[in-house]
């Protein structure tokens, strides 16, 4: 991978409702280039909707999402396409294309699903597989022929294959054993520390959050209720954060 500079992300006043259910209620959030932000929050807090708004999969009702100063909510702008080229995404369930072998999945961002430079792409896929701790033989298998944990790592390989500047991870360690989870944590940390990528991760895994994060933000009922450096997480003084990180039900 070539060295690069991470992207900045600025979210201001982001709102999204589905019918009369308010999911995002004025989210304000910022990530500096080369920084790793982990978003924590309970189920239904709006984390996935926030991510989908940033990725342009859901149109927000109001608010702005700036990536390197480009407003991503302006669907008509040509500049958003150029920014999207520099974004990678790891979906919670992997979201691998089951009609294609693993190596085509990994190189999809480079080929857009067309058969071009097959030898070169196959070699690149094997290189990416090694980065996520998988054997080269996996390259020629179909997603349905590998385990859920392996699918997750293949999806991670796909997310980083095109050398993105800004990468989103939705529950990157869910479904992995502790050793594999640690490998993924190290890989994500390495992308940020060694290569200068900006990372935004959604996770419930507090061990992973401590490993990956520079900054942590807690989303609760559609609002950011606390944000700060990871070393302040355990002494945030915020009741909601304390309850979440210690798993208290009271």
């Amino acid at each position: 991978m070539t060295e690069r500079h991470g992207s900045s992300l600025e979210i201001a006043g982001l709102r999204k409702s589905f019918d009369d259910k308010i999911v995002l209620d004025g989210v304000n959030l910022g990530v500096r280039p080369g920084e790793s932000l982990v978003i924590i929050g309970g189920s239904g807090a709006g984390k996935s909707v926030l991510l989908k708004c940033i990725l342009g999969l859901i149109q927000p009702d109001s608010g702005t999402i700036l990536i390197d100063g480009v407003d991503m909510t302006d669907q008509r702008s040509d500049r958003t396409d150029a920014v999207r080229e520099r974004i990678g995404m790891l979906f919670q369930g992997g979201a691998l294309f089951d009609s294609m072998p693993v190596w085509r999945n990994i190189t999809f961002a480079l080929t857009q699903g067309r058969a071009r430079d097959s030898k070169k792409m196959h070699a690149l896929a094997i290189e990416m597989l090694e980065k996520v701790g998988l054997e080269p033989r996996v390259a020629d298998l179909r997603p349905a022929e590998i385990s859920g944990g392996m699918q997750k790592r293949v999806a991670l390989a796909r997310a980083i294959a095109a050398n993105p500047d800004l990468i989103f991870f939705d529950e990157p360690t869910t479904g992995l054993d502790p050793i594999r989870a640690n490998t993924i944590n190290q890989l994500i940390r390495g992308l940020v520390t060694d290569l200068g990528c900006t990372a935004v991760t959604i996770t419930h895994d507090m061990a992973s959050a401590h490993h990956i994060a520079d900054q942590v933000a807690m989303l609760h009922e559609g609002r950011i209720v606390w944000a700060g450096p990871v070393d302040q997480l355990d002494k945030s003084g915020n009741e909601l954060v304390d309850r979440f990180i210690h798993g208290r039900t009271d």
């Binding site: 990725l55 396409d81 999207r84 979906f91 979201a95 691998l96 961002a109 857009q112 796909r158």
Partner: peptide, 9 residues
């Protein structure tokens, strides 16, 4: 997978 397609431009 359809969302993934879109994120992969």
């Amino acid at each position: 997978q359809i969302d993934a397609l879109q994120t992969l431009r």
